[in-house]
Design a protein around this nucleic acid. Structure first.
Lengths: 203, 203, 203, 203
DNA sequence: CATGAATGAGTCTTCATTCAT
DNA sequence: AATGAATGAAGACTCATTCAT
């Protein structure tokens, strides 16, 4: 019966783990439950992972890699600073909404990671924060018409909004994904004193 | 079934529990550690509490009561809607910064609470959200010069900023408490298209 | 029911562990069995020990301490080298016979000990070997009438006989304790070319 | 139920098992490790063995067969009792030194053997003990000039020395194989009151 | 009130063994 | 023959909880 799954069991385990870590938290999730989610016995997990940490580490490193890559790709071909920021924010919000489960875990289970891995993830987070800040700073230097509040705080607020979106957005909720992305992006741009619409689109 | 709710030791236990829940999370904290933080043995805890849940429940109900009471008191004697909002935001941010530990626990350990208690806490949270929304709506109806984005989202964003402040503010950090409160309050007001400074203070 | 045992449970646990380590070996003995031997549950063991290692470590350090102390005490007040050797051998054999269980464990479970403890026990064993060798050498230098074979090997042989006695002697066996001690002591003395009987006793 | 008793891999597995049983003991050795020593996966072992017991049983029966056969062959063509004993001891010591690993396992893992196999091995050990005793008795009856101590004990001592040699001899140690064999053989002969050198060699 | 000890369920992990491929 | 995956039992250890002292 178990055959024919190909090499997919490992992925199913990660899925099951992510679902449970999201619902109950890492420490409150037992391997028994994770295995149950895949339809195998606890011991069988160890054919695919080295330990419980593995599941969390994989998850957290993956989500940080994906987030960094997504925003970098989103701004890659754009020159104009404000357009870059707009594109970055769009991607940032959209990512946090669509991958809210993993982002949520990434934000809440840092302390559950073994110290060594935690350091690595924190470095990636710092890198992401700097990427966002560089987008914010570049756009504000060129275009902002109001004296901006502390730009580091502004960047924190951008991160906060991502985190928050991840904590409540549901695909079947009151607002569509595009509406949410639009609303929050505008909110941030207005906050920074920047025009919400791309120049060519506004004319 | 002993209880000594007013006791000195009981308070120390709550403190120890709060510190550990904050650092490691509820599920990852053992009663042994909590007892250790007070300098007593595990068994002795049961002279003061009924179980591990107790500690979390007390904490979460207390913080919600305090938060609601604080903001209500802050706006109690103010009539003018925008002033009410300003005062409410000031209190909201300040509370989240100064009581960041307990607020953080309140935001992250909801799922660790037994279902019955969870419901009660969620009701209190809804109540708080409505309080904030009423402040936002009242101020925007009277004074806002820009078409506001969805006001429910705006309120969410206000909550998000509180949560975020609680997650990084430290009394010995780069910014003073007043600076943080000022910055975030202004940020939100600007966002809503409202004047950041009270009229009389500005002149 | 469990009360009134005073603080004796820890000792009962050590006993139970020693019996099982002797019969089945350390690795093949489960904590469940050890606890069963005392009439308690596995978890209860941890009120008295820190882990399985503890039981082995205590055992091995105790037996080496006792052995060293016993032989040192046995030769303490004796000046004459051959008499010292006789007394030392008597004690050596007698100890290995009467405490055969623990000696056996000590000889066979060294590798089961965590590396740090293992080193400590090995030092004690080296110390004991040197004590025995010093007795042998002193006696042979003064009195031996035959050219002795390598004295280090002879000492090894003395140790080997102790080990071997511990592996088969039973109090209810064919030979009494005194007979065994007598026979092996004579055997070794003869081997070294020394007179088996104390001078005054022989006359 | 595959079997390939003559196979090359089967022999490698036995080797790997013997090395590990020697270093860590039977109970503390996992099939994973044994397989690792051969460079195959655990499951593959079962193409060559029926189970973990198999490995130990084979080892123990083999070593007893070899030991018995070796000593029998060594004394086969010798008539004179003391010469027979000398040759037997030489072989006994030499065997224990050169095959120390397997002899060590044979002496220490008896209790790890399933009851049925254990009985068989014990019979072989008894047979070997009787062989040695017969050599000792025959030589002592004809030639010994001193009143021998209990001959059964003497035989035990001979066995003890074999065991002990197996526990410390290393080919690259301080003494050569011949020196060790010589020393211990002389020791035993002297013990029995028998001349250490063959008559013809002494002249 | 505090303690030390007991309990039983539960944790993660390892193991020998099986078997389809 | 070798492999990768599955299994179920067992391992050591932790935990929240209870209770006699």
């Amino acid at each position: 019966m178990p055959r024919s799954r190909g090499g997919r069991t490992a992925a199913l385990i990660q899925e099951s783990a992510a679902n449970l870590f999201y619902r109950k938290g890492y420490a409150a999730t037992s391997l028994r439950e994770i295995a149950g989610g895949v339809g195998i016995q606890v011991g069988s997990l160890y054919n695919h992972i080295d330990g419980k940490d593995d599941l969390l580490r994989n998850l957290m490193e993956q989500i940080m890699r994906d987030l960094l890559a997504a925003v970098r790709a989103a701004v890659a071909d754009i020159e104009e600073p404000t357009d870059r920021l707009r594109a970055g924010l769009d991607c940032h919000i959209r990512f946090h909404a669509t991958r809210s489960r993993d982002v949520f875990i990434g934000n809440n289970e840092l302390r559950s990671l073994p110290a060594a891995d935690r350091r690595r993830v924190i470095l990636a987070r710092d890198e992401y924060e700097q990427l966002l800040r560089s987008l914010v700073v570049a756009a504000c230097q060129r275009e902002s018409r109001e004296a901006p509040i502390d730009l580091r705080l502004q960047t924190y607020a951008v991160l906060a909004i991502g985190t928050h979106v991840a904590s409540w957005y549901r695909p079947d909720g009151r607002l569509t994904l595009d509406e949410v992305v639009q609303a929050y992006t505008d909110m941030i741009l207005r906050q920074l004193g920047l025009p919400p619409m791309p120049a060519e689109a506004a004319s």
